[in-house]
Measured scan of single mutants.
Amino acid sequence: TETREFDNEEEARKEAERLRRKGQDVQIRKKGNRWELRRT
């Protein structure tokens, strides 16, 4: 599992969408005042 953190939700969602188009399974969750993007 690979995780990346983003400062805002929009960036996290854009990156998640990009990875999903490549066929990756991605989850986003709020972590304090940041957003965590998890690739499984």
Rank of each mutant, 00 (worst) to 15 (best):
T1E: 12
T1I: 13
T1G: 12
T1Q: 11
T1K: 09
E2A: 12
E2V: 13
E2P: 09
E2H: 12
E2I: 13
E2T: 12
E2N: 10
T3H: 09
T3G: 09
T3I: 14
T3C: 15
T3R: 10
R4T: 11
R4I: 14
R4Y: 14
R4H: 09
R4F: 14
E5L: 15
E5F: 15
E5W: 15
E5H: 10
F6T: 01
F6Q: 00
F6G: 00
F6L: 01
F6C: 02
F6W: 04
F6H: 02
F6A: 02
D7E: 09
D7P: 06
D7I: 07
D7S: 07
D7Q: 06
D7A: 08
D7F: 06
D7V: 06
D7R: 06
N8F: 07
N8V: 05
N8I: 05
N8P: 01
N8H: 05
E9W: 15
E9K: 06
E9N: 02
E9D: 02
E9G: 03
E9M: 08
E9Q: 06
E10H: 10
E10G: 07
E10Q: 10
E10K: 08
E10M: 10
E10V: 08
E10L: 09
E10N: 08
E11V: 04
E11F: 03
E11R: 03
E11T: 06
E11M: 06
A12C: 14
A12I: 02
A12V: 05
A12L: 02
A12D: 00
A12N: 00
A12H: 00
R13I: 13
R13N: 11
R13P: 00
R13H: 11
R13F: 12
R13M: 13
R13V: 12
R13Q: 12
R13D: 05
K14G: 07
K14D: 09
E15K: 02
E15I: 05
E15F: 07
E15Q: 05
E15R: 02
E15M: 08
E15D: 02
E15P: 00
A16V: 06
A16F: 12
A16I: 03
A16N: 00
A16G: 06
A16L: 09
A16W: 11
A16D: 00
E17M: 12
E17W: 08
E17V: 08
E17Q: 10
E17D: 11
E17A: 12
R18L: 11
R18S: 08
R18W: 07
R18P: 01
R18A: 09
R18D: 06
R18I: 11
R18V: 09
L19A: 04
L19E: 03
L19M: 11
L19S: 03
L19W: 09
R20K: 08
R20H: 05
R20L: 06
R21F: 06
R21N: 09
R21V: 07
R21Q: 10
R21M: 12
R21L: 12
R21W: 06
R21H: 07
R21T: 07
R21I: 07
K22Q: 14
K22I: 13
K22W: 10
K22E: 13
G23M: 03
G23F: 03
G23S: 02
G23E: 02
G23A: 02
Q24P: 02
Q24N: 08
Q24H: 14
Q24T: 08
Q24L: 15
D25V: 14
D25Y: 14
D25Q: 14
D25S: 13
D25L: 13
D25I: 14
D25K: 12
D25G: 07
V26Y: 10
V26Q: 01
V26W: 14
V26I: 08
V26L: 04
V26F: 09
Q27K: 07
Q27M: 11
Q27N: 07
Q27I: 14
Q27H: 10
I28R: 02
I28K: 01
I28W: 03
I28P: 02
I28M: 06
I28Q: 01
I28A: 03
I28Y: 04
I28D: 00
R29G: 05
R29F: 14
R29V: 15
R29D: 06
R29H: 12
R29E: 09
R29K: 10
R29W: 09
R29L: 14
K30M: 06
K30D: 01
K30W: 04
K30T: 04
K30G: 03
K31F: 05
K31T: 08
K31Q: 07
K31E: 06
K31P: 02
G32P: 00
G32F: 01
G32M: 01
G32A: 02
N33T: 05
N33S: 06
N33H: 05
N33V: 04
N33C: 10
N33P: 13
N33E: 10
R34A: 06
R34M: 12
R34D: 05
R34P: 00
R34N: 08
R34V: 09
W35M: 01
W35V: 00
W35H: 01
E36H: 03
E36D: 00
E36K: 02
L37P: 04
L37D: 04
L37N: 03
L37M: 04
L37K: 03
L37W: 02
L37Q: 03
L37Y: 00
L37F: 00
L37V: 15
R38D: 09
R38V: 15
R38G: 08
R38T: 15
R38H: 14
R38N: 09
R38A: 12
R39P: 14
R39F: 15
R39E: 14
R39S: 15
R39N: 14
T40Q: 10
T40A: 10
T40K: 09
T40P: 07
